[in-house]
Amino acid sequence: MNPIEDIITTIRTLFTKQPNTIYEVRIVYQRYANKVNIFFESYKIGQAKRSQQIGRLDDEYRLQIPALAKQIHEATGLTIRTSD
């Protein structure tokens, strides 16, 4: 499996549909480390956000972040947030 499929599989195992809980995936490019980090975030309404790193990709994926976000969204249906 490629790293993207591994990340999607991890997201599917972490996504456990709880009432009043919001789930999303955040994709962040760390410019000083030259890495793309992917986080799974969840929070219940009125509580603090929990963030868990689920993937770390090399710099070569930096230009593919929009396509990566679209691929993860289509596979999981979750909200994807990106930031540079």
Rank of each mutant, 00 (worst) to 15 (best):
N2S: 12
N2R: 03
P3S: 09
P3N: 11
E5V: 11
D6S: 09
D6N: 11
D6P: 01
I8R: 01
T9L: 01
T10E: 00
R12T: 05
R12V: 04
R12Q: 06
T13M: 13
T13W: 13
L14Q: 02
F15V: 00
K17R: 12
K17Q: 01
Q18M: 15
P19Q: 08
N20S: 10
I22H: 07
I22F: 14
I22P: 04
Y23S: 00
V28N: 06
Y29T: 06
Y29F: 15
R31G: 10
R31W: 06
Y32V: 15
A33W: 00
A33I: 08
V36L: 08
N37Q: 14
N37G: 09
N37I: 08
S42A: 11
S42P: 07
S42Y: 10
G46C: 03
G46T: 08
Q47R: 11
Q47W: 08
A48L: 15
A48K: 15
K49E: 11
K49F: 03
K49Q: 09
R50N: 15
S51V: 09
I54S: 02
I54V: 15
G55K: 04
L57T: 06
D58Q: 08
D59C: 09
D59Y: 08
E60G: 10
E60D: 14
Q64Y: 12
Q64I: 01
I65N: 06
A67D: 15
L68P: 02
K70P: 03
K70G: 07
H73P: 05
E74W: 07
E74V: 10
A75H: 03
T76K: 07
T76H: 11
G77V: 05
T79P: 00
I80W: 07
R81I: 02
T82L: 07
S83V: 13
D84V: 11
D84T: 13
